[in-house]
């Protein structure tokens, strides 16, 4: 392997892995048991997993069609559209949370109408956690699926059309299976981002144990009072997400890539 590639690659590994090693080394291992059984930890973990998964499903449902529009349709102003929908990638998540308030809060453009009609207010609910996570994480999915769609051979879609498939059937039976590995990779990115989401969640959904307090929020607040306990919680989040990704990789991602 050439040194101009090897040396920076090793530096990158060190840069990414050493902080992790720091967490592991500094973790108060003897306290892990008591910390894990503390009330609220299991709840926060469950809430994190559930809301990140729901956010990923929502992103798939809305983001894959959006990626298709960006990659395949001949809509005018497509580049502008692409720039707009990737804004959450660069927007500080806290600002994203405030922006969600302005639209979906009970004083928001849409939320006000909903609140007046039904008395339902989205902020401070578990649904708000899912919405905040989706807002921040969906662009990751859209960008990677759009890339996969652009890389896929569009002539397969021509072939499907000559076989009587309309665009919807073509999308379902040809395009989507062809880009399945890209969709899977995007979903994993999206899930990971949603799992770690902090800023938009704490702003838009608030922080309440059992309802909206996800692991990152629990970690941050524990850090204020008990840094060692916060390290333990971070490691738990890390271990669970790694385990999930490895499991998916074995069962689903590889099959998708081979298909």
């Amino acid at each position: 392997m050439p040194a101009p590639l090897l040396v920076p690659a090793l530096l990158a590994v060190a840069f990414l892995v050493l902080p992790l090693v720091g967490l592991v080394v500094r973790a108060p291992w003897s306290e892990i048991g008591p910390q894990l059984t503390r009330p609220g930890v299991g709840e926060a973990l469950r809430l994190s997993l559930v809301s990140a998964t729901l956010a990923t499903l929502l992103s798939l449902l809305l983001g894959v069609p959006l990626a298709w529009v960006l990659a395949r349709s001949r809509v005018r102003g497509r580049s502008l559209l692409r720039a707009l929908v990737t804004v959450p990638l660069v927007l500080p998540p806290v600002v994203g949370g405030v922006a969600l308030f302005l639209v979906l809060g009970r004083q928001g453009i849409v939320g006000r109408w909903l609140f007046e009609a039904t008395g339902f207010s989205l902020p401070f609910t578990t649904a708000a956690v899912v919405v905040a996570e989706t807002f921040v994480a969906m662009p990751f999915l859209v960008v990677s699926v759009e890339g996969a769609l652009r890389a896929a051979d569009a002539r397969f879609e021509d072939a499907a059309a000559t076989l009587g498939a309309d665009r919807w059937t073509t999308f379902r039976r040809v395009t989507l299976p062809l880009v399945a590995p890209g969709v899977a990779a995007g979903a994993v990115l999206c899930w990971a981002r949603a799992l770690g989401e902090f800023g938009a969640t704490i702003t838009f959904a608030g922080n309440f144990p059992g309802t909206t307090q996800t692991m990152p929020l629990a970690v941050y607040l524990t850090l204020q009072r008990d840094p060692e306990a916060a390290i333990v919680l971070s490691l738990v989040l890390l271990a669970v997400s790694l385990a999930t990704l490895l499991l998916l990789r074995g069962r689903w991602l590889v099959r998708g890539a081979a298909g």
């Binding site: 308030f101 809060g105 704490i202 702003t203 608030g206």
Partner: peptide, 21 residues
């Protein structure tokens, strides 16, 4: 019976300013 426990006082105040609490 709070709906949210904010991470700092400014965050709590922001929600009042936005009329969300």
């Amino acid at each position: 019976q709070p709906d949210t426990q904010e991470d700092d006082v400014r965050a709590a105040l922001t929600k009042v300013q936005l009329g969300e609490v």
